[in-house]
Amino acid sequence: MILPTGTIPQIGDRITDKSAPPDESAVREWIGPEAFEHWAELRNWIDEFYPGVFAPDWLYGGKNRGWSLRYKKTKAFTALVPEYRRFSAIVVMGGTEREKFDERRYVWRPQLVKLYDDAKTYIDGKWLTVAISSADDLHDVTELLTMKRPPLSRG
């Protein structure tokens, strides 16, 4: 969170102070109260629908990527990236998930389809970075995650 003197953070800037992972209050302060509501809602959703599956851990991705909160069991589930005044969820779409996405292509919101189509495909799949700034964005992410790994409970 420490920026060079005189530098004003820009929307989307990441937390890059590698001395320690951010705590909840640092995340709230950085992403702002509205984004923090979505952050907390997504974390609660994961806890509710995947009870006891994930032990989220903070990863430092270097000065360009900063900190992210990773949810992983054997395979990556998602990573939440606190950014200045917003946050993003990273969802890796492997071959199976890409097939499922394409089957439902016309059900998804157009901006999600564009994000998907524009995402580079790597050996392990497409890495979608979905900026979450509305309930619709949050819904897109929960739908992607449900498609990736069916929930253990239905609440």
Rank of each mutant, 00 (worst) to 15 (best):
I2W: 05
P4W: 00
G6H: 10
G6D: 04
I8M: 07
I8W: 00
I8C: 03
P9Q: 04
I11N: 11
G12D: 06
G12V: 00
I15N: 05
I15P: 03
T16Q: 12
K18I: 04
K18F: 09
K18L: 02
S19C: 03
A20W: 07
A20P: 10
A20N: 08
P21K: 09
P22A: 12
D23I: 12
D23F: 07
S25V: 14
S25P: 01
A26V: 11
A26W: 00
V27N: 05
V27F: 01
R28K: 11
R28Q: 13
W30F: 07
W30C: 04
I31W: 04
I31Q: 02
G32V: 04
P33T: 10
E34H: 09
E34Q: 11
A35M: 13
F36C: 09
E37A: 15
E37I: 12
E37Q: 13
W39M: 06
A40P: 01
A40L: 13
A40C: 12
R43E: 01
R43A: 06
N44F: 03
D47A: 14
D47F: 07
F49Q: 04
P51E: 04
G52T: 02
V53C: 08
V53S: 10
V53R: 14
F54D: 03
P56W: 12
P56G: 09
D57F: 08
W58F: 09
W58R: 01
L59Q: 14
G61L: 11
G62N: 00
G62L: 08
K63D: 04
K63I: 05
K63G: 02
N64S: 10
R65F: 15
G66T: 00
K72N: 07
K75D: 10
K75P: 00
K75R: 15
A76D: 10
A76S: 15
L80A: 05
R85E: 10
F87Y: 10
A89P: 00
A89I: 01
V91S: 06
V91E: 01
V92T: 14
M93S: 08
G95S: 15
T96G: 05
K100P: 05
F101G: 04
E103D: 13
R104I: 07
R104S: 09
R105D: 04
R105H: 06
Y106K: 13
V107Y: 07
W108Q: 06
R109W: 08
P110Y: 06
K114Q: 12
L115F: 01
L115P: 00
L115A: 11
D117R: 12
D117L: 09
D118S: 12
D118P: 05
K120R: 15
K120P: 02
K120S: 05
T121L: 15
D124H: 13
G125A: 08
G125W: 02
G125Q: 01
K126L: 09
W127F: 09
W127P: 01
L128K: 04
L128R: 03
A131C: 04
A131Y: 02
A131R: 14
S133D: 07
D136Q: 10
D137E: 02
L138S: 05
L138K: 05
H139G: 03
H139M: 01
T142S: 11
E143N: 09
L145M: 13
L145W: 08
L145I: 07
R149G: 03
P150G: 09
L152H: 09
S153C: 08
R154F: 12
